[in-house]
Design a protein around this nucleic acid. Structure first.
Lengths: 207, 207
DNA sequence: GTTCAAATCAAACGATCGTTTGAGCATACG
DNA sequence: CGTATGCTCAAACGATCGTTTGATTTGAAC
């Protein structure tokens, strides 16, 4: 049981420290000794609570992606299939939940972890992400296909891949983009979303 | 001196194996023992020829980026500053040399190494890349600024960052995109370049 | 107060890491 | 031939890795 003087239970503290160290040093670069020291827990706690380092990595993804995916799906359902839906609305359903995550606690660190997972062409990790969250990408692609009926299947996949690459890259760097002190965080997030949506929409719609 | 029956000298064999293993397993994930075994050389050869693993990593970048950067700069010089230059021409100067590299031997593996370097926010590596090859990015950005005078500095940086993110992501996956058997490699490369250029140009030019 | 399971702990496991050493081999030059 | 010189090699260095163990502590149930 968790000690009462600690703010968070051991499991949560490990997940938080893991997210930060995986973002900064990669999955292989961050050791369990650094990680447990940063979390203020015993070395053996990782294997006790998660079973192994690989399962801890999966839990780091699960904790954030469960929420992110369901928010994206919920936002998509509001516009999917409607007769007057715009590309920009679908992109907003994809981007805004990720931006909300980026501005919530250590969420921006998680976007860096996600960008690493993209760059690592690790088969095990890709299969885990595809099995558990692939349906989200398929739903969005299907909606883009409906709104861009003149594009061939091949052309559509190309553009969706380029959009996700650009957005993942951009959002993994959000921690560094300084918000000007004369705009509120909410306004800043709104402006960022507009940047990304305009750019991605132009790329998708290009003739 | 190299043994006469081996096709390549030890240094080249190490660089080739390093490129492949860094692409597949990352800089920390690929060990010198895997690496030297794959190259068919002795473990100590890395430290003898390169001094350390970190210096080997730098050499892997240097071998490809020296060529890539000079080709990009040469292509840019042909259109920079001219009165009738188009965005598409500047993007071609950036993209085509990278595509040529991707289709040359293990070049596509190097693009994956480069994508990893983007994802790793490692300060040492970023400084090395910025110090040695940052002038290329600055030249291209300056030319984009000339062709897109209505964009604010901030807006321009945003879009250039999104373009490089999308392109690096896309090109790191080229090894997997299957060329249809009824098109020659040259035609395939041409088609790929047109995909990327159209997408990026639309994003840059969006109002 | 006793019991019992969950949680934490220090310590050690074998494996692997990057790096170094010193002997041995090859070729080129005197 | 003798001898430098460039290179390769097996072996070992200390450090660190993920994981496991067994004892100890904790807190609630009875």
């Amino acid at each position: 049981m968790p000690a009462s003087h600690t703010a968070l239970p051991t499991k949560e503290r490990i997940l938080g420290a893991a997210e930060e160290l995986f973002a900064r040093h990669g999955f292989e670069g961050a050791s369990l000794r650094q990680l447990t020291a940063a979390a203020g827990v015993n070395l053996a706690a990782v294997n006790y609570h998660f079973g192994s380092k690989d399962r801890l990595i999966e839990e780091v993804f699960r904790r954030r992606l469960d929420q992110l995916s369901s928010r994206r799906m919920a936002a998509l359902q509001k516009v999917a299939g409607e007769p007057d839906t715009t590309i920009e609305e679908v992109l907003a359903a994809f981007i805004v939940p990720a931006l909300e995550l980026s501005h919530d606690g250590n969420g921006s660190l998680f976007m860096r972890v996600l960008a690493r997972a993209f760059a690592e062409h690790d088969d095990t990790l890709r299969k885990f992400l595809s099995d558990n969250y692939g349906h989200v990408m398929r739903q969005f692609t299907a909606e883009f296909a409906r709104l861009l009926p003149h594009l061939s299947k091949e052309e559509l996949y190309w553009r969706v891949d380029l959009v996700t690459g650009a957005l993942t890259h951009a959002m993994s760097g959000f921690g560094m983009i300084q918000r000007k002190s004369d705009v509120t965080e909410h306004v800043h997030r709104e402006q960022t979303a507009q940047h990304l949506i305009r750019f991605a929409a132009a790329g998708l719609k290009s003739p």
